[in-house]
Simulated assay, not measured.
Amino acid sequence: MNDALLLVARILIAALFLGGAVQKLISPVGASDLLAGFGLPVALIWLALAYNALAGLALVAGIWLRPVAVSLAIYCAGTSVFHFIPDDPWQMSIFVKNWAIAGGCLALAVAGAGRWKVRWAKAHPT
């Protein structure tokens, strides 16, 4: 049962990052405007897109889970500052969600991927 729950947890958290990558690909304007509003290079959106996609796929596959999960926790904590707008309840809910997702990522880093993950085939000498 634990392995199944870890797989579901990995997929649910990954869905957020994979969806974010697709959103940045299809409609980069919102994230670009957010970056520009903070004086950051708009080109960072493509780096964020690639990171979201690769990290999300790694979570689903269960590969490099601990370092990826820790990096995602740091990413969520860092990007939460973009949403710290106390006068905007919607942005504040995103701010809190980022911290909750960071907590979920840290829990995955502690628990590991479980048995249901992609395993690399070991080369056999001929």
Rank of each mutant, 00 (worst) to 15 (best):
M1W: 14
N2H: 15
N2Q: 15
N2P: 12
N2K: 15
L5R: 15
L6F: 12
L6N: 04
L7W: 09
L7F: 10
R10Y: 11
I11C: 15
L12W: 10
L12T: 14
L12F: 13
I13V: 15
A15M: 15
L18Y: 05
G19K: 14
G19E: 12
G19P: 09
G20M: 11
A21Y: 03
A21C: 07
V22K: 03
V22F: 10
Q23C: 03
K24V: 12
K24G: 09
L25I: 13
I26F: 12
I26T: 13
I26L: 14
S27T: 10
P28Y: 08
V29H: 13
G30H: 08
G30M: 10
A31P: 03
L34I: 04
A36W: 05
G37I: 05
G37E: 00
F38G: 02
F38Q: 02
F38N: 03
G39F: 00
L40V: 01
L40W: 00
L40G: 01
V42M: 01
V42S: 03
V42Q: 08
V42L: 05
L44W: 07
A48R: 07
L49N: 08
L49V: 11
A50C: 11
A58N: 03
V60E: 06
V60L: 07
A61V: 06
I63V: 15
W64Q: 10
L65G: 02
R66S: 02
R66H: 00
V68L: 06
V68P: 05
A69L: 03
A69E: 03
V70K: 01
V70A: 06
L72V: 04
L72W: 02
L72R: 03
Y75T: 06
A77L: 13
A77Q: 07
G78R: 14
G78F: 14
G78D: 11
V81Q: 01
H83E: 06
I85R: 07
D87A: 09
D87C: 00
D87M: 02
D88K: 08
P89K: 01
W90R: 13
M92T: 03
S93L: 07
S93Q: 14
I94T: 13
I94E: 02
I94R: 03
V96N: 03
N98A: 01
N98S: 07
W99L: 14
A102S: 09
G104A: 00
G104I: 00
C105Q: 02
A107P: 02
L108R: 03
L108C: 03
L108W: 07
A109M: 08
V110Q: 11
V110C: 06
A111S: 09
R119H: 08
K122D: 10
A123L: 09
A123E: 07
H124K: 13
P125I: 13
T126S: 14
